[in-house]
Design a protein around this nucleic acid. Structure first.
Length: 812
DNA sequence: AGCACGCCGACT
DNA sequence: GTCGGCGTGCTC
């Protein structure tokens, strides 16, 4: 028997099937989708079986045998092999690249050559070079060794060559051993030894980091090393010092526990649907019977009970023996979803899948799914690759969220994969949102999706309409602070009435930067050519794109002026300002810094819930899901940065954000108020009365400017260490494409823009130039073909890489 | 991609 | 004679 295999090495040259013979002992276990180890050009690699055959056209001399086959529960189901092929086609990636995304833990084992010393006797009879002699004696001392352990001052290539010779001379014996790759199942824990005041006194006071570390250790003598690092805000070097001086003991502990919320199994609770929900569930069921391949869009604001509808639909699928995939936009939302579904269907039937699972957990979840013992898979976007069969329903909750698009290669869109899987399994695909994306609604209006609405909010007021404050007028009136007079008064009112406020600060597209007031010089990253972001806590500047960090100079490096100040508002600055204005109020802050520690997110929520916090300041994090009855005011500090992003979806994103944040006010008996500050009070994204009005405005704009959904944006990015090279390739490609598109009579369907530097011209030492095309759907396949050819050509070009985005959204 | 193989120049 | 560097071509 022969097996045709895709090897898991991501390179265009290797993206083909390689044929191997199946040894007799594996014939019974091997299947299509099996994960195997195979010999491949001097080494051994992991591969996935694509076909099994009884014949082959490959000459016998070339064929090698499969070395090893992993257990059946690790193999890929055939449906996922189809998904792989689909993704390769759709995103022009390699099989290996897609497979690495789908498989639970990359490569599981590694084959290593092991050498044992036998005798140096043959060396006496041959002329041995100095490097051979040295190698032989090194291994004689070591006894047994692996190649990468050998430490002698000769090139790796030479060591390799010499090892072969020594084996041929019978000086060494050679053996292949399989090394289990270290899996992420272990976690480093520390235990603090006795730390006394004496210890602390011995450290000079100006060693702030060391003192932070000791203070932290006194409070938390045991814990995870990573938590210590974050909690005490210390670097690796301080950890090393602690270890070296014996202040902590570090041990590797196996970390295989299941996510804790998975353990509690609750009794099933029967649910009473509201009339609206019952109607929608019935309508969706009917629709599925009549048009099973047409996806469903469920419109309904937060709190309208979409989840109940999903659960009812899942229930009916489970009853006929089919399974469900439930996707949520963020990993943070999975626990609450799991517990809700566990209460209804029982925890043992649920699997969890997302990128933050430890290798052990992921492994366990994968096995459970593969064995068929779970019926519902919940997770973030990667859960769309759940290795389950017989899917009856795929749910994409809050489908407008941008996290459903992967920004890493392969740049997939979860909806596209979901649609493919739903079609393959004849399953119902249902997406839900309060503010559906323009694309979704456009599809509905074109008869490609079916919309159902669930509009009523229960026990909740309609989301209040924002009151728009013109910040330009604030400036003319002499108010230079970030709070408008109106918002100030509104907060003050809440404080007097004992109600709570949420102040939202949009940070998307926002940076806190340092600039010279005298000459305008701004600190930028030397690698990426973008503005460095200021972090007050560490008093450091850092780059968002690479790891570059720098201290803040006292004076301007350009003109020497001391008017060198940081600008822009961060949550910290906002919190400070509020403290100054309302010294008696309790202010809570929620952003990435304050919630990095485990449980701190919940702790802050708790303080809001118990009404200890009067004013909650925060970023995106507080935009969704928070449900507090006593919050009657939402202030939005500025939407301008979002509105003005260099992005065709800026309007859509602004609208969605404002809707979401506004929904946080007036969720209880008291009506809510939303105050929105801006420098462009007339902007359409904040002035539409209804979603429908917004859609009409936005879609007209998209059509006029020829943006998606009226075209596909295909972006070609050229990367090179040299600016001239990147520009050159971009320019040549532009000319080439332009000439060929005209020849092929595609020019009426493709708008091509000249080569130009990307907005972020340099990232991590690479210069970036791009060529953008807007492609009408009739011309898309042809353009894709051209682009694919282009990509193949670039395989052999070493000084310039091409990065293709066939469905570009943000072009930075 | 990784790795052998082979040729050339440098160095002992 | 030995070794490192780099360009080329192949991997079932």
């Amino acid at each position: 028997m022969y097996a045709e295999i895709i090897v898991l090495r991501n390179h265009a040259n290797l993206d083909q099937l390689f044929t191997y013979t199946v040894p007799l002992n594996l014939e019974a276990v091997i299947t299509v989708g099996s994960r195997v180890m195979v010999p491949f050009g001097g080494e051994s690699l992991e591969g996935v079986v694509w076909h099994l055959a009884h014949e082959t056209s490959v000459e016998a001399a070339k064929l090698k045998a499969i070395l090893f086959c992993f257990e059946p529960t690790l193999s890929l189901p055939e449906t996922l092999l189809n998904v792989t092929a689909f993704m390769k086609e759709t995103y022009l990636s390699t099989h290996a690249e897609v497979l690495q995304l789908l498989l639970p833990t990359g490569t599981l084992v590694e084959a290593v050559q092991q050498y044992t010393f036998i005798t140096d006797e043959p060396l006496a009879h041959t002329k041995a070079t100095p490097s051979i002699k040295q190698l032989a004696s090194w291994i004689q001392d070591a006894g047994v060794c692996e190649e990468n352990m050998i430490d002698i001052p000769f090139s790796q290539a030479l060591v390799k060559r010499n090892l072969k010779q020594l084996v041929a001379l019978n000086v060494l014996s050679e053996k292949t051993v399989y090394v289990q790759k270290v899996k992420d199942r272990y976690v480093s824990r520390y235990h603090a030894e006795d730390i006394t005041d004496q210890t602390r006194a011995s450290i000079p006071a100006h060693y702030h980091a060391k003192h932070r570390a000791l203070d932290y250790l006194i409070k938390h003598p045991d814990g995870k090393l990573s938590v210590l690092r974050e909690g005490a805000r210390i670097s690796k070097s301080v950890i090393d010092w602690l270890k070296h001086d014996g202040l902590i003991k570090v041990t590797e502990v196996e970390d295989r526990r299941m996510p804790s919320f998975m353990e509690s199994v609750s009794a099933k609770k029967s649910v009473q649907l509201s009339p609206d929900q019952t109607t929608v569930v019935g309508a969706v069921r009917k629709h599925f019977l009549e048009a099973p391949t047409m996806p469903v869009l469920l419109r309904g604001v937060t709190g309208s009970g979409k989840t109940e509808v999903y659960m009812a639909l899942i229930d009916s699928m489970l009853k006929v023996g089919r399974r469900a995939i439930y996707l949520v936009p963020e990993i943070a939302l999975t626990p609450q979803m799991v517990s809700r579904l566990a209460k209804r269907f029982g925890a043992s039937r649920i699997a969890l899948m997302h990128s933050k699972l430890s290798a052990g957990e992921r492994f366990d979840q994968w096995k459970a799914m593969r064995e068929g013992s779970v019926d519902i898979v919940i997770g973030a976007r990667s859960a769309i690759f759940a290795p389950i069969d017989n899917i009856g329903i795929i749910i994409i909750d809050e489908s407008h969220e941008h996290s459903y698009r992967s920004e890493r290669r392969p740049k997939f869109d979860t909806y596209e994969i979901a649609k493919y899987r739903a079609l393959q399994e004849k399953a119902l695909l249902i997406e839900g949102s309060a503010t559906p994306s323009i694309d979704s609604v456009h599809e509905v209006l074109n008869g490609r999706r079916q919309m159902f609405a669930l509009e009523k909010r229960y026990n909740v007021h309609e989301p209040p309409k924002p009151e728009i404050i013109d910040m330009r007028q604030e400036l003319t009136a002499g108010n230079r602070t970030i709070l408008s007079r109106r918002l100030y008064e509104a907060i003050e009112e809440r404080l007097e009435r004992g109600e709570q406020s949420i102040i939202f600060l949009n940070r998307t597209g926002h940076s806190t930067f340092v600039t010279c007031r005298s000459c305008g010089y701004t600190l930028t990253c030397p690698n990426c050519d973008i503005t460095l972001t200021y972090h007050k806590h560490e008093n450091k500047m850092s780059c968002h794109y690479c790891q570059y960090e720098s201290f803040v100079p006292r004076n301007c490096p350009s003109c020497g002026s001391s008017y060198f100040k940081h600008f822009g508002v961060g949550t910290e600055k906002l919190e400070e300002t509020l403290k100054k204005f309302f010294p008696h109020a309790t202010i809570g802050r929620m952003d990435r810094t304050t919630t990095s520690r485990k449980g701190s997110f919940e702790a802050i929520l708790e303080r809001v819930e118990t009404e200890e916090i009067d004013i909650l300041v925060g970023t995106q994090m507080i935009a969704k899901g928070l449900d507090f009855e006593n919050v009657t005011l939402v202030g939005i500090i500025s939407v301008d940065l979002l509105m003005n992003m260099p992005h065709f979806q800026a309007g859509e994103m602004t609208y969605q954000m404002v809707q979401q944040v506004s929904g946080r006010a007036g969720r209880g008996a008291l009506p809510g108020e939303v105050i929105l500050q801006t420098y462009q009070p007339e902007h359409y994204a904040i002035n539409c009365e209804t979603y429908h009005a917004f859609y009409e405005h936005e879609i007209a704009l998209r059509q006029r400017l020829n943006y998606p959904p009226f075209c596909r944006m295909v972006n070609l990015l050229f990367l090179s260490r040299s600016e001239a090279t990147a520009e050159d390739y971009a320019e040549k490609t532009f000319q080439y494409l332009k000439a060929n598109l005209f020849k092929k009579d595609l020019h009426s369907m493709v708008e091509i823009f000249p080569a130009h530097p990307a907005l972020l011209k340099k990232i991590d030492g690479n210069y970036r130039f791009q060529v953008l095309m807007k492609v009408q759907s009739e011309g898309y396949e042809a353009v894709k073909g051209w682009v694919d050819k282009l990509q193949t050509r670039f395989v052999s070009i070493s000084d310039c890489k091409i990065n293709i985005d066939l469905n570009a959204k943000n072009i930075l």
